[in-house]
Nucleic acid binder design. Structure first.
Lengths: 120, 120
DNA sequence: TGTATCCATTGACAGTCGTCGATGGAACGC
DNA sequence: GCGTTCCATCGACGACTGTCAATGGATACA
């Protein structure tokens, strides 16, 4: 080991005698980590990113039939993606006659809002 | 249909004659949507959220052996999660002797940085 | 040189996810 | 009422994901 490397090691791992391991902060509460992971998992699909992009640039609620026309996917698949986004708190929906409309959830959580803000 | 509902429909779906569908903006470039989805997919696991939390609060690079001690998971699983975060651009690693250290990637993309900033 | 430690990789397995076709309920127009 | 349209749900299937045990390479130290 060179002198430089030795100095680097001292800076990186001071007081790590037998091996290098030292205790690490316990981290986030499990519930918090689970919530954040679920939030990001809902964003882990290109179709759902596109849906949120459409909703974040739309001035009005968007009809499901508009989504099915915009994507090369079956209607059940679109419905599934919309339900995923709704379950994660990103969007809300309402029915109007035979149509269902979706829009961004105005009560979205702060991390969710930050994530949607990056979809540009 | 009540008069109020009729007015609401006119506001929501003007000029939607045969059905309600109207063209929707084509959306993000596919590559952009894919990149954002991959980024969020890498955050879609509580263990990886915890890892990023530890790294974002650590003042020094953190040794893999510290992660294996902090989680109730096997060493290959920790290694897998760290590789996932590295492939997604969240962290970088270097070896020092027999130890491997990880830290937040200083060249992280802007959406990635925003997401990590929400892990608190 | 030999041994021990650390960590990445491989192979395997159960569970989850994205997608589709089929079905059924709800609302509209005739 | 009756047929039509829209959309959520169900069942199924292939692909991917998280986890582990086993393996092997690289490094340090006696």
């Amino acid at each position: 080991m060179t002198a430089a490397a030795s100095a680097a090691r001292a800076a990186l791992a001071p007081a790590r005698i037998k091996g290098c391991c030292q205790p690490v902060a316990p981290g986030l509460p499990d519930a918090r980590a689970d919530n954040l992971a679920a939030l990001h998992k809902a964003l882990g699909d290109p179709t759902r990113i596109q849906i949120l992009h459409i909703l974040s640039t739309a001035s009005e609620p968007v009809c499901v039939c508009d989504f099915t026309a915009a994507f090369d996917l079956g209607q059940p698949t679109i419905s599934h993606h919309l339900a995923t986004l709704r379950d994660a708190g990103f969007v809300t929906s309402f029915k109007f006659g035979i149509w269902a409309f979706y829009r961004l959830n105005p009560a979205m959580s702060e991390p969710a809002r930050a994530a949607v803000g990056q979809i540009r």
